[in-house]
Simulated assay, not measured.
Amino acid sequence: MANAVILGAGRLGKGFLGETLANAPRWHTTFLDKDAGVIRKLKETGSYHVQVYRKECIEEHEVSGYEAYETLLEPQDCHAIVYADLLFLSIYPQDFPEAIAYVKEIFKMRAKTNPNQKLSMLCLTNKNGMIPMIQDAFVKDMNEELLSWFMHQVVIRDTIIRRSTDADDHRSLNIRSTAVLSLLIQPPLTIDIADIEWLELCDDIAMLKDIKVFLVNGPHAASAYLGWYRGYTTINELLEDEDGAAFIQEVTKEIRAGILQQYPISEEQLDKLSVFPKAKGDMPDTVYRVGKDPLRKLSYDDRLCGSARMCKAHHLPYEHIVQAIAYGLLYDEKTDEAAMQMQMLIQEKGIIEAVHQICGFSYQDDLLKEICSWYVRLKNK
C-alpha cells in the first residue's frame, strides 16, 4: 500500500485527485483541510459522488475508503504526512505560505520517526514560477540536520492542470469533472505513479505551464468575464452565443500567434498541450468558478495581461485580449471577495490607478490606456 495525502479538499482535491486515486487500488488517500466544514461533511457521509465526463462516456463514481482530518486540530493529520509517499498541495497560491509552515513542522517529526521514506510533493496551481519560492520557504531557518534530511528525502515538483472540476461550492460532495487529458508532472519523482490514471510525467514544465496558462486559461477567463457581463451563469451559455463564441475565438487566435512567436514550440506540440478532446456530454462550467479572484487573474504576468504583453512585444494584434481584460475589470460578483476589493479600488482611485495597481502597467504604457478606453466604453454601453 502506498499513501497519498491531499492538502486541500475542495473541488479539485476531491473531484480530480481523490477520484483518480480511488481508482488505483495500491493507494490509500487522506484528505486534509483547514476548513472544518469540508472535513465534517467528508467524515459524516464517508463517501462523495463524482460525475466524470470522459471522451467515451459519463461515469458516476462514488468515492469512499478515504480518511479526512482538519489541519492543526487533529493529530492524525500529522501521522498522514509522516508516512505519505505523495503529498498533493491542491490550494490557491495565496495559501502556500500557511500550508508550508504547517507541513514544515510535521517534517520535523517525519525526519525523526520515518527518516528513510522518500516523499514527492506536487503543487497544483496555475501560477507559474512558484517552485523556487516554495523550496526557499521550506529550507529557511532549518537546522543543519533537518536540512540534510529534507534535501535527500523530499522533492518538490510543479504540475500543469488540464482538467475542469466544478461543484456548487468547495464543500460540496457532488462534483463534476472532465477526464480527457492528464495532469502533467515535472520529473523525476521518488515513487512510481504508473498505476495512477491521468498522471503523466513531462519535461519542460515551466515553459509549457506558461503556454498553457496563456492559451487555455486566458480564453477561459475571458469567457467568464464576458459571460458575466452578458448575464450568463455558465461558460456553456456564452459559447452557445454566436457572438460570444466568435469573440473567444479571436482572443484565442491572438494568444496563439503570440505564443508561436515567443516560444520554441510547433503548432502540433501546441495542439497536443492545449486542445482538449471533446468529452461525452456537456459538463456545466460556472462563470463564478472560472472568474473567481480577478485580482490574480488580471495581474501582470497572468493569463490575459501576460498574453497582451507578449503580443505587443512581437508587434502582433491584441485588441480582443485587451477588451477581455476590460470585461474582467467590470466583473462585479458580490460573492467574490477579490472582485469586491477590485470594484472598491476602481471606485475610490479611478480606473487608471486601478489598472496600474491590478494589471501592473505603467501610466505611460499603451496597454494601460487601451484597457481604460475599453473599460469606459463597455461600462457606458
Rank of each mutant, 00 (worst) to 15 (best):
A2P: 13
N3P: 09
L12P: 01
G13I: 01
K14Y: 10
G18C: 09
N23T: 07
N23D: 08
A24S: 15
R26M: 14
L32I: 05
L32V: 06
L32C: 05
L42W: 01
K43F: 14
E44S: 14
E56Y: 05
E60C: 14
Y66Q: 02
Y66W: 10
Y66V: 02
Y66G: 07
E67S: 10
A68I: 00
E70G: 07
T71I: 06
L72T: 12
D77S: 12
C78W: 06
L86A: 13
Y92Q: 11
P93E: 04
V103Y: 02
K108H: 13
R110P: 02
N114W: 03
K118I: 12
C123F: 08
L124G: 00
N128G: 15
Q135H: 07
V139L: 11
V139T: 14
D141Q: 05
N143H: 08
S148L: 13
W149F: 09
M151W: 12
H152V: 15
T165P: 04
D166H: 11
D169A: 13
R171A: 15
R171Q: 12
I175A: 07
V180I: 04
L181V: 14
S182C: 15
T190C: 13
I196W: 01
I196Q: 05
W198D: 08
A206L: 09
N217H: 06
N217A: 04
P219R: 03
H220T: 11
A222W: 00
S223D: 07
L226Q: 10
W228P: 04
W228Y: 15
T233K: 10
I235Y: 00
I235Q: 04
L238F: 07
L239K: 01
I255N: 03
L260V: 08
Y263H: 09
E268G: 09
E268I: 13
D271A: 15
K272R: 09
L273R: 00
S274T: 12
K280H: 11
G281D: 03
M283S: 08
P294F: 12
L298F: 05
L298S: 04
Y300P: 05
R303D: 03
L304R: 00
A308E: 04
R309N: 08
C311Q: 02
P317H: 04
V322Q: 01
A324N: 05
A324L: 00
I325R: 00
A326Q: 00
Y327Q: 04
Y327M: 03
E333S: 13
K334S: 15
K334A: 10
E337C: 15
Q343L: 05
I346G: 02
Q347S: 10
E348I: 09
A354V: 06
V355Y: 02
I358E: 00
G360T: 02
F361N: 01
Y363K: 11
Y363L: 13
Q364M: 08
Q364V: 14
L368C: 07
I371Q: 01
C372F: 00
W374E: 15
Y375V: 04
R377Q: 15
K379F: 07
